[in-house]
Structure formats: structure tokens, C-alpha cells
Amino acid sequence: MALDLTSFWLAISNGELMANTLVKGTLTGLVYGLMALGLSVIFGVVRVVNFAHGEMMVVGMYGAWLLAVHAGLDPLLAMPVMAALLFAGGYLLQRGLINRFVTRPEHVQFLLLVAVAMILANTALMLFGPDARTVQVDYAFDSILVGPLILDLIRIYAAGFAILLTLLLFAFFRFTLTGKAIRAAADNLLGAQVIGLDHQRLYALTFGIGAAAVGAGGCLMLLLIDATPMIASDFTILGFIIVILGGLGSLMGALVGGILIGVSEALAGTLIEPSMKSMVSFGLLILVLLIRPQGLFGRRG
């Protein structure tokens, strides 16, 4: 664990390097945020901890990869397709399976989703093998210069779409009738039932929306990293770290948590050692769980 102090100080005193690291981390973090958003939405409404979240993202990644290889579709264009497919999958999963477990103890629901995660990740392993799958887009190596900053076009696209989709989700929950109904069911389930809302349908819709968000996030993620079955559980944990950092159930918190993790990973990669970057995330998770379990933006439950 040789921590080279000289190179550490060289890096930290290099303003250009630091600025580029911060920007890169922020852009990646926005995609992380979108990925984690679905986890937060599902927990906030259905009160189920989706332990298969990273696995759902990997399904989105492989879907986008298949569409790119067999139909020549850009992952950005694959996004609506994968979002729709994962919406359907999430809806059915909630309706057909998770719904039967709502009255069961918390840990049973958690283990149920562990089982779903095992099935998803290992089905991907059976179908695609352990090899890394990647797509080549023509803008892969383009970048734009803004002063001393070098911005990869691919990261800007990914982050831009992440922001766009997040805004869409915000608008959905804020302005549409269904969105308001879902929030009502989350705030006061009994009240929602009294005024005649079909909470089972709303739960299924919410799970679908959460799955769609992470599916779209997977398409964006495919632009940044390779798809392998092994990253699935890592991203589940990363999702937890992000939403717990931001506060489970808070949309804003998920986005800010995503940026925080993106930046801290990028900083750790530049300043310490790339292979140790997730240690920083786990360290952050432990700290937040102990000191502020409701997260930065969450309300105390």
C-alpha cells in the first residue's frame, strides 16, 4: 500500500489536472445519479430495497449492446427501447412477485430481491459469458476544449441525457396526475386507499419507472464502461451508497449523491490509486450510515 506522497502533492498542486478530474467526476457522477434515482424512487414509494438494481442496469447495458451490434443502434437511441422493456419487466416483477411479499418481514423482501439479483446476473453470465462487451461510437474519442478543460464528448452526452431524464422524472412526479397519485400513496398509504387509489397498480408503476430509469442509465453507462456480469453487484452497492448518501427516497439527494461519489472516485483515482477508488466510496458509506443514516437530503424516518 505504497502511498507515494511526492506524486500526491504533484497531482494536487496541478490545478489543470485537478479541474479536469473534478469535471470528469461530475459528469460520470450525473450518470451514477440517474442510475441510483430508480433505487430511491422504488424505496421511497414501495418501501422495498431493490437489491437487484445493479443487475437491472446490466440488463440495460446488454440490451443496448445487442441493439448496437445487431441493429447498429447508438446506445443513446437504444435508451427509449431499453427503458420501455425494463419498465415492463419492473411492472411485472412488482405485480407478480414482490407484491406477494409486502406483508412479510423486511429481511424476507430483501432476500427475495437478492434472489432476483442472482438470477439476473447469472443469466447474463450464461448468455454473454464473462467477457467485457463494449460499443464503438464515432464520437468516442472526440473532445472539446474549454479553457484548460478537456471535455470528452461522450461524457457530456451521457451526463446531458442523465440530467434530461432526471428533469423528466421530476416533472412526472410534480405535474402529472399519476405522479401525484404515486406521491400520495408514498406519503399516506391509508389516505390514498380511502380516496380510491389503486395502490397495487401505483406500486407496480413505480417499480416500472425505477427499472426504466436504471435501464436508461445502463445505456448511458455503456458509453463509459464495458458491460460484464461481474459489475452488476458492484453497481447495486454503488447505488446504495449514492442513495444513502443523498437520503433514501429523495430524488435530489440521489443526484447529489451521484455527483459526490463520481467526484470522490475520480479524485481517489488521480490522487491515490485507481484500484482503491471504491474503498473511498465504502468508507463514505460507513461514515454516513453511522453519523447521518437519513442521508444528506433525507428526512428522519
Partner: peptide, 13 residues
Amino acid sequence: AGVRQVVFGVLLI
């Protein structure tokens, strides 16, 4: 690869 875990996952459910 992975078959065993899929079976275990189904069994767990």
C-alpha cells in the same frame, strides 16, 4: 457458468 446460481436463485424464491 452461472447455471448453479440461477437454480439457487429460483429455489430461494
